[in-house]
Amino acid sequence: MRRMLKQSALVRDNNFKGGLKEYAKQMGKIGKFASQVKIAGYVSIGADVVSSGVNVYEAAPEDKARTTVVETTKVGVGIVGGIYTTGLVIGLASGGVGFVVIGVVILSAGAAVKGASEISGWIAGKSYDLIEKTLEDE
């Protein structure tokens, strides 16, 4: 294992001072950061679910079904988009791309997932309205 790490590009690089001990210390810092990001992800999912629940609870009685469909779609698309974003980030991180590039990908992918979530909620609302109107016409 030690021989493999010594042959690694990070340890051999002239910019990486300190050798194997410093490398292990940096990996420990990255591990702590990863666990904090994981906790933040759980908090974010919880906040989205609670926010959607409040929106459904506060909806007018005649709009509860529509609001439920819209909010459920938004949360679902947000979670699925987060899964794909995580896969993308892990793929980039394991490929050796710099942390700045990974940070840009995380921020832009997060914004894209939020946008996709809002758009899917809007589409779900329009679809619900169309289906409801069609059922009323029959």
Rank of each mutant, 00 (worst) to 15 (best):
K6L: 15
K6H: 12
S8P: 14
A9N: 14
A9H: 13
L10R: 00
V11Q: 05
V11W: 12
R12A: 08
D13F: 14
D13L: 09
N15M: 14
N15F: 15
N15Q: 13
N15S: 13
N15I: 15
F16G: 00
K17Y: 15
L20N: 03
K21A: 14
K21P: 13
E22I: 13
E22Q: 13
E22S: 09
E22D: 15
Y23R: 03
A24F: 14
Q26D: 14
Q26I: 09
K29T: 08
K29C: 05
I30H: 02
G31T: 12
G31I: 14
K32Y: 10
K32I: 14
F33V: 06
A34G: 02
A34W: 06
A34N: 01
Q36A: 08
V37F: 12
V37L: 07
V37T: 04
K38D: 14
K38H: 08
I39D: 07
I39F: 05
A40Y: 12
A40D: 11
G41Y: 07
G41S: 05
V43M: 05
V43Q: 03
S44H: 03
G46F: 11
A47M: 12
D48W: 09
D48L: 09
V49W: 01
V50L: 10
S51T: 11
S51M: 08
S52E: 15
S52G: 15
S52M: 15
N55I: 11
N55Q: 10
V56T: 07
V56Y: 13
Y57M: 08
E58L: 08
A59V: 07
A59Y: 13
A60V: 07
A60P: 06
P61M: 03
P61F: 05
D63F: 04
K64F: 09
K64H: 03
A65N: 10
A65Q: 12
A65W: 11
R66A: 09
R66V: 08
R66K: 08
R66L: 11
T67C: 06
T68H: 07
V70P: 01
V70F: 03
K74N: 03
V75H: 00
G76R: 04
V77K: 00
G78L: 04
G78C: 04
I83M: 02
I83A: 01
I83T: 01
T85H: 01
T85A: 07
T85I: 09
T86F: 14
V89L: 02
I90K: 03
I90W: 08
I90D: 07
I90Y: 06
L92N: 04
A93G: 01
A93Y: 07
S94Y: 11
S94L: 07
G96Y: 13
V97R: 04
G98A: 06
V101E: 15
V104A: 00
L107Q: 07
S108Q: 12
A109F: 10
A109E: 13
A109R: 04
A109N: 08
A112N: 03
V113C: 06
G115P: 02
G115R: 01
G115Y: 02
A116H: 05
A116I: 10
E118S: 01
E118P: 01
I119V: 14
W122T: 01
